[in-house]
């Protein structure tokens, strides 16, 4: 069953992340795809994540299709103008890609090419509007297409915000993303089921399937790093303490992720596991969570 039909029929889904590497070596991507297929419903293919230049998400999505794993093609607005974005989307459809995740994208200054020109010709909302137009058979300017796609567009949202303005802006933008055509939402990593429940209360009226983000902890240092450097990630002190005390760090990290998934499952329609280098352990997490 495809991601779209599963979500539309109200089933619980599992997605994960496959990050293209820097260079032309695709062994690891192929291995991970082999290992994850049948275990997850779809895998996001990140697009120049953290503004670090790597192999493209378009071709990597196609590799996943060849390996029998359904991709969610991520596309950021940082690197391409509206002509290139639309053209890549048409290419994606021709390659057999159905799911697209529209993202604004981190600033180039955060990556390994800080001198690069940032584009942001479109942003996540206007890109979603563009995808909807392509689905309706025209380009962004209303010019007719010969043959049209039928994408299943998605978007992202931050659950935790440190200011009222940030929280309200996230919700307002989520509403616009959905109005612009987003039909599923993946969230930034969640570590606190209570605050996720509060968030869900506020957004349930939008009636769009939400997949809670989960990043397994590898160490206390990683948790502290994310708290200080990754916007919207807040690992509670108890979890950091648990990781500090653990003798088997990996096992503890996986157990925490599995427990979290059990708590999040009744609140939403799926989980999105971002393993960040631990792709091979995703099946273990899924099993421990009883999914």
């Amino acid at each position: 069953m495809s991601l779209q039909s599963k979500l539309e029929s109200g089933k619980f889904v599992i997605t994960c992340e496959v990050g293209p590497l820097k260079g032309t070596d695709i062994h690891e991507v192929e291995e991970n795809a082999e290992l994850l297929k049948g275990k997850v419903d779809a895998a996001n293919v990140t697009d120049q994540q953290s503004s670090v230049m790597r192999l493209g998400s378009l071709v990597t999505s196609q590799i996943l299709i060849q390996k029998g794993l359904e991709p969610i093609y991520q596309t950021v607005c940082r690197d391409r103008n509206r002509i290139a974005l639309q053209s890549d989307l048409l290419s994606a459809w021709v390659m057999g890609i159905k799911n697209v995740l529209a993202i604004t994208g981190d600033l180039p200054q955060l990556g390994d090419h800080p001198e690069a020109k940032a584009v942001y010709d479109l942003d996540s909302v206007t890109l979603l509007q563009t995808i909807s137009k392509l689905n309706n058979g025209t380009d962004i300017n209303g010019n007719e297409l010969q043959g049209k796609p039928s994408f299943f567009p998605g978007a992202v949202v931050k659950v935790e915000s440190d200011t009222e303005a940030s929280m309200e802006l996230q919700i307002a933008k989520l509403e616009r993303k959905i109005a612009a055509g987003a039909r599923f939402i993946q969230t930034q990593a969640v570590y606190d089921a209570d605050s996720f429940a509060k968030f869900m209360k506020r957004v349930e009226k939008f009636n769009v399937p939400i997949l809670a983000g989960v990043i397994p902890l590898k160490s206390a240092g990683m948790a502290r790093y994310m708290n200080n450097n990754v916007a919207g990630v807040m690992v509670p002190d108890e979890l950091i303490q648990q990781m500090t005390d653990a003798t088997e760090k990996a096992a503890t990290g996986i157990q925490i992720a599995a427990d979290l998934i059990k708590q999040l499952k009744p609140l939403c329609q799926g989980v999105h596991i971002m393993a960040i280098g631990w792709e091979k352990r995703v099946p273990e997490i899924i099993q421990a969570a009883g999914l």
């Binding site: 600033l107 942001y120 996540s124 909302v125 206007t126 940030s166 996230q170 307002a172 930034q188």
Partner: peptide, 10 residues
Amino acid sequence: KSLVSGACGG
């Protein structure tokens, strides 16, 4: 980023 549709998540 000169965004016209509201804040990014950053």
